[in-house]
Design a protein around this nucleic acid. Structure first.
Lengths: 243, 243
DNA sequence: ATCCCTATTGAACACGTGATCAACGAGTGA
DNA sequence: TCACTCGTTGATCACGTGTTCAATAGGGAT
């Protein structure tokens, strides 16, 4: 049997379509196997095309990686931010957002982020894109936090208590740190509790003041995972990809 | 001129010494350039020896990487934990520890950690070691936090308020997230303020209750770094290595 | 049916990777 | 001084990487 390669594309596409199909293939590949998997030959095999053609459309691999990174994380950010629910209050929305970001079905995007920090330190094209995407995340979260403060009867009285800017920094750091940890299957038993504590920290409000049941526990997975436990051999690839 | 390679070692060392020199060279190399730089040839050049000899002492590169990782992060953890100062209170000690961990002169160890999360997802030998080292970090921090709570007149009254276990999880996540971000030079203007907010979150205490001047500002670096600013071209390697 | 533009290919280059193994030679004990 | 042990080497393998380029052939225009 062949590997999970897409069917061979019809030959001789118009350039825009081929370009699109190559980008799509690279995005899917990186979402499944990480940015390190973005090889000329691997992308070519995925798209069903010759390595030379990939190199023809994207002559410099280094910047292609940066482009794929941007595509993946921008799509994810749009998706997460768009899940905002106007029918409930902002604090609950924030809590749900945090729980979404901590969900370990998102390990694929987490891998892309973690690799981007390592690769971006020496690949300046990538580094620039990484900073840009993080700025966008920061702005979005800062906005949500600021609105949550204004909406809150207690915090509203004390406008200097919470600085949305630094709160957004902290939130990003916590979420990114936990996502990185989950890549090696190191995660706390109770993720829901951790989300509550995270929101409590972000809003500078005691933990007991954060509502307990944000999501009505979609699936009945209770025991989760022990810190130092070994997962079954090689967990293979995470089942869920980006789109 | 040659690259920054160590002087050629005298020939025919006793096996323990050669083994030690190879490990030392690999540790220094990984601390400077990351775990990805650990190739048979690079280590050999560093030690001043033939690639075949490195392969002789460490026949499987994959597990050698895991060993080097452990050596580096264990040394760093010991060093940081040992900087505990019994002459001041625990809250101040915690604040200093956080400031130490956030200091960007530690980008070399941060790179090792970030790469370990990415590589550890598929290299199970490494993944196991990563979880072990993180468990040790978690225990150490949990212990410090628990003692800080007992020592604190307010928190002592309310023993259920702060759970040292989950606080340690949060602290690790925040510190690791910020360290990862700093690899691409994405860092908040005021790191000292961020350390205060982090401690506030960990102890579940309002920010205003965390003491302001923890370190008397060793150097006069004030403006620090703007989020989206581009560093000068290639910042080369960070000057400071592990030992 | 023919032409011609160009999307696409096959092949090759130069390099870097981990790993293997017969052979060398320095140092030590006899 | 000899001989032997074993730390060390040089060479080589099979493979994967990005990149280049002349040559091919698909398919719309004529």
């Amino acid at each position: 049997m062949e590997t999970t390669s897409r069917a061979a594309a019809p030959r001789r596409l118009p350039p825009e379509e081929r370009e699109r199909s190559i980008l799509d293939g690279a995005v899917a590949l990186a979402a499944e196997s990480g940015l390190e998997a973005l090889t000329v030959r691997a992308v070519a095999a995925r798209v069903g095309v010759t390595p030379a053609l990939v190199a023809h459309y994207r002559p410099v691999m280094e910047s292609f990686v940066a482009e794929v990174f941007t595509t993946i994380v921008a799509a994810e950010r749009d998706e997460v931010i768009a899940s905002y629910d106007p029918s409930v209050d902002l604090r609950t929305n924030l809590l749900r957002l945090i729980e979404t970001l901590l969900d370990d079905s998102r390990d694929d995007v987490a891998m892309v982020w973690v690799q981007s920090w390592a690769l971006g330190a020496r690949n300046e094209a990538l580094g620039t894109r990484v900073r840009t995407e993080m700025d966008l995340w920061h702005s979005a979260l800062e906005d949500l936090i600021a609105r949550a403060i204004v909406e809150d009867p207690v915090l509203r009285e004390d406008p200097l208590r919470v600085d949305p800017d630094s709160s957004a920094w902290m939130l990003l750091a916590m979420v990114d740190g936990m996502s990185a940890h989950s890549l090696v299957h190191w995660a706390p038993r109770d993720r829901a509790d951790l989300a509550r504590r995270t929101l409590s920290a972000v809003l500078d409000v005691p933990v007991r003041d954060v509502p307990m049941p944000a999501t009505p526990v979609p699936d009945a997975a209770q025991p989760a995972e022990h810190p130092a436990e070994h997962p079954a051999e090689h967990p293979a690839q995470p089942a869920e990809t980006l789109r």
